[in-house]
Amino acid sequence: MQRETGFCVECRDVTSYTLQKKLVKKMIRGEELTFEITCAICDRCGEFMSVPGIIDLNVREVDEQYRKLKDLVTIEDIYTLMKLYNIGKAPLSIVLGFGEITITRYLLGQVPSKEYSDVIRNALFSPEYMEQKMLENKDKIAMSAFKKSMTKVNELKNIFTVSNKMIGVISYIFERMDEVTPLMLQKLLYYIQGFSFALNDREMFIENCEAWVHGPVYKDVYNIF
């Protein structure tokens, strides 16, 4: 366990403290939820200490756990979406059918509703969905912004040749695992397909794998990542 020093208001002295994980209950949107946060515990009296950076850390911990619990997109997801389609905050908000400053608020930390989160996630994982939203709101954004984003949409449509079922499985893997290498992803997809045949007597997705030097590979997935 990590030990540092800080001022303990109970001991009225500079003492060492230990960072420990504690469960806390918080009310969010009228619902009481339990989160695991990092706390600084005085080694002398055992009371909580306020040390530099601990509040910001707790805010991030609660935010990450809440988004994961409610299956909501992260700030990083939104930045990825903007980069994928070469689109700014305001145009993206309008294209997705939100208010003009909605994406800006989300990037500043506001947590989206499940409905808005699903819209963002659909755009992130489906160029066809993004194309549909772009065409629906074409007249509401500048033509230059529309053309730039549509160019990216068409590029991604040419890359994303895998089925929606495959994209769904990949999204599920990414959601459940902290880190997935391209090689690990290929092996997981191979095992998932095998288990589907063994347990359900049917394929999970329509793609066929190829035998490469380091094992089974779904070529289109390989090209994407």
Rank of each mutant, 00 (worst) to 15 (best):
M1A: 14
Q2H: 10
R3N: 09
G6P: 04
G6N: 13
F7Y: 15
E10V: 15
R12S: 11
D13F: 06
D13Y: 07
T18R: 05
L19D: 01
Q20L: 14
Q20Y: 06
Q20E: 15
L23Q: 15
K25C: 06
E31K: 14
E31Y: 02
E31Q: 12
I37Q: 00
D43K: 12
D43F: 08
R44A: 07
E47C: 12
F48K: 11
M49Y: 05
S50L: 13
S50N: 14
P52K: 11
I54G: 05
L57V: 12
V59R: 12
V59H: 08
E61A: 12
V62Q: 04
V62Y: 02
D63I: 10
E64Q: 12
E64G: 04
Q65G: 09
Q65R: 08
R67V: 09
R67W: 05
L69V: 10
L69I: 15
D71V: 14
D71G: 12
L72T: 11
T74H: 04
I75W: 01
E76T: 15
D77T: 13
I78A: 01
L81Y: 03
L81E: 04
M82Y: 04
M82K: 13
M82W: 03
L84K: 15
L84P: 02
L84Q: 13
L84R: 15
Y85M: 01
Y85N: 02
N86T: 09
N86M: 02
I87Y: 03
I87C: 09
I87H: 02
K89R: 13
A90R: 14
P91Y: 08
V95H: 01
F98H: 07
G99N: 05
I103G: 10
I103H: 04
Y106G: 08
L108E: 14
Q110F: 12
V111K: 03
S113K: 07
E115W: 01
E115R: 14
E115D: 12
Y116F: 05
S117I: 10
D118R: 14
V119K: 11
A123K: 06
L124S: 07
F125P: 02
P127N: 06
E128G: 08
M130V: 14
E131W: 09
E136M: 13
D139P: 02
D139W: 08
A145N: 11
A145F: 06
A145P: 01
T151G: 13
K152R: 15
N154E: 14
K157S: 07
F160R: 10
F160W: 12
F160Q: 07
V162E: 00
N164L: 09
M166L: 13
I167N: 04
G168T: 05
V169D: 01
S171P: 02
S171V: 10
S171Q: 12
I173T: 02
F174V: 13
E175D: 11
D178C: 04
T181K: 02
P182W: 03
P182E: 01
L185S: 02
L185N: 04
Q186P: 08
K187I: 02
L189S: 04
Y190I: 06
Y190A: 13
Y191D: 05
I192Y: 06
I192V: 11
G194R: 05
S196E: 02
F197A: 10
A198Y: 09
E207Y: 06
C209R: 06
P216I: 01
V217P: 00
K219A: 08
Y222I: 08
Y222F: 12
Y222R: 11
F225A: 11
